[in-house]
Amino acid sequence: MSASATDDSLASLAAREARGGRLSTAGFLIGPATVFVTIGLLVPILILFRYSLNDFKPGLLMVDALTIKQYVLFFTDPYFLAAFWRTLRVAIMVTAICLVVAFPLAYKLARTQSRYKNVLIMLVVLPLFVGNAVRAAGWMTAFGNKGFVNVSLQWLGLIDEPIRIMYTEFAVVVGIVAVNLPYVVLTLQSVIEGIDRVVEEAAFSLGADPLTMARRVLWPLALPGFAAGAIFCFILTMNAYATPVLLGGPQFVMMGPLVYVQFAVKSNWPFGAAVSFVLMTATLLLTAAANLMVLRRYRN
């Protein structure tokens, strides 16, 4: 009996040792990446936050301080506030348009049996990888005074003089919608693919027409996917840089370009850091709110 007790304790000791060994292996595997991201991202964000509490004196640049002056400046200055609301407005418009426009393509991609499905997916992914500046170049070709759109409209006799499309909100919204669509399409597609075709057919066989089916069956099931796509799209628009700079021009200031100008052109690090923080907080808060709203509805 005592022998078996020793065996037991030996076995448990061995098990504990094995567990300890497994844990140290786990630490060895994940440790380097964790250290890298902590030092490379968390520490910098903390330093950025500290910078945003510093003071700025023209000529002296950054002065050590502990003040919320930069944040107050941002939220009281009409120019900066206008940039903030403009960014928010564009983000909401772009997200709404993207969701509506992405759905048919996402559904077709999810349900197609075609052997060209892979090619279609590649066509959606390619623009995403090609980068924002190149795609903005495409719109610049189309939107100029002698660009494709103006020349076509004049040829059709719809307008006499070229209309201004470049450097307008319209151009920026079109550009960002095109930039974000692949993300939204792919997010929706993967969610729809996860919904069993059978539930759709069940709805049809019970007499539902496609619209009813979409509203009563597909929509509730795909809601989390729509939310994920909307959040992704919203974050991307809030932080857009190349598209507003190239299609909106210097007058159409959005948050991303604003941060860059404060850092690189004005060398105002404290204010740039504060704007950067406002941008990050606004993005994270709004996405968290959207997440909560969807989750609550989903649970009911």
Binding site: P104, L105, R135, A137, G138, T141, A142, P182, V185
Partner: peptide, 12 residues
């Protein structure tokens, strides 16, 4: 939608 996504690449 697919055409719209590819349109800027086409123009450039």
């Amino acid at each position: 939608t697919l055409g719209f996504i590819l349109l800027p690449l086409f123009f450039v």
